[in-house]
Design a binder for these strands. Structure first.
Lengths: 226, 226
DNA sequence: CCGCTCGGGACATCCATGTGACATCCATGC
DNA sequence: GCATGGATGTCACATGGATGTCCCGAGCGG
């Protein structure tokens, strides 16, 4: 899922936003100052930046300019957060290349919708691509299609997410807890056979190619390309 | 590069849009009233008109009608800008011959994408044809006509738009949210059957050929040519 | 007033999913 | 080797959520 950097000096607000973005399945990172935000962005380029224009150190506009001037960070979408009535800021922000803005006070719901919309657009622009592969298996995210040796395999939405998660983390063992959390969105310990059952169904549908999903006894599952 | 006429009464917004269009390499011209816009268009026919439906003098719809009735200005593409929630206006606008619309508040990136897309289509039409096809279905954007095995099918403006969107993104799954956003111009989570209903109507009108609209359970719809 | 289009609520329908019971397998200690 | 307990594989089934379908009311144009 997408990675979002929050640059916001009001701790309460930052916490609230972070909590909700995580609940919606995003990875988040937070900085309380403009300088800190830029450092974070450089260290770990995000897909989207939530930028407050009123920061204690650097002016928000300046941060935006810096972000957009770095070829590495440039591709991140930017959503501006500005205080009520700062029309001038808003205009300036959009001129500088922000993708959208929300005005304080905003509802979490609205923020989520805008973030999702911006990311969706960014996705659409990236064109086709987005094909994961391992062994005889290839998975096309945008088409929502899986092939084994060129032959199409029909998966359910859940099976698809599971396979994608495993492919994205090829060769690394995923515990049942991690899978439950990342594929199912559930945080809990397990006493049921839910994960196993779906792994089984996946192996079944993949046929012989299903062998690349390995069981790591006592730990979890991993997908290991030949 | 293309020439764009902005008819918009909010000065700030007009300025912002103008700035960005110029930055993107377009020639621009601005009018703050409907009458002024028509005068400008007559004096110097644009390739594309960005038309706000809420104008101080003439109704936006009227401006559109005038534009389309003049043989000289007729060839200009029109992108409607309407305030949030003015559903009726959008539909009406499309029926009157607008090529696309954006809903306020919109992001600059979105506006640019739509403007470029519309111009691209307009360009393509100058050539032999602007026909999208898949299986037995062919859709002619310039004639606003759909055929199944050569037989003409009558679609409403909305159905046409829905089908075109699916055709343009053949093979790629579109979630209900994406469709609502791109076909309807609404940003929201869904609890209604709106999208499904229109998909159903589309399938119905397309007859057996309607089968190429696939349901991807848990995700959305996609059109997959044989 | 009639007919068309569209949105969306109220169902009907379908099938993906979660679950617990049971079978099986494997690492471990002897 | 072998017994043993815990971990994993497998299965059938109910249940809820997602989708298909129908229908009505609103808005608009003729």
């Amino acid at each position: 899922m997408a990675r979002i950097l929050i640059i916001e000096d009001e701790q309460d607000l930052a916490g609230l936003v972070e909590y909700n973005l995580r609940a919606a399945g995003f990875e988040t990172d937070t900085a309380n100052t403009g300088a800190g935000g830029l450092a974070r962005a450089r260290a770990h380029p995000p897909d989207l930046v939530l930028l407050d224009l009123m920061l204690p150190d650097v002016a928000g506009g300046e941060v935006l300019r810096m972000l957009k001037s770095d070829p590495e960070m440039k591709k991140a979408a930017v959503v501006i957060v500005s205080a009520k009535g700062q029309e001038a800021d808003r205009i300036q922000g959009l001129e500088l290349g922000a993708d959208d803005y929300v005005v304080k006070p905003f509802s979490v719901r609205e923020l989520l919708l805008r973030v999702k919309a911006v990311l969706r657009r960014a996705d659409a622009e990236e064109g086709p691509a987005a094909v994961l592969a391992a062994g005889d298996i290839s998975l096309d995210t945008s088409r929502h299609q899986v092939r084994v040796k060129g032959e199409e395999i029909i998966l359910t939405a859940l099976e698809f997410r599971l396979l994608r998660t495993l492919l994205e983390r090829s060769d690394r063992v995923q515990t049942r807890e991690v899978l439950l959390s990342d594929v199912w969105g559930i945080q809990a310990e397990i006493h049921t056979r839910t994960v196993d059952t779906h792994i089984k169904r996946l192996r079944e549908k993949l046929g012989p190619a299903g062998d690349i999903i390995e069981t790591v006894r006592g730990v979890g599952y991993k997908l290991s390309p030949p």
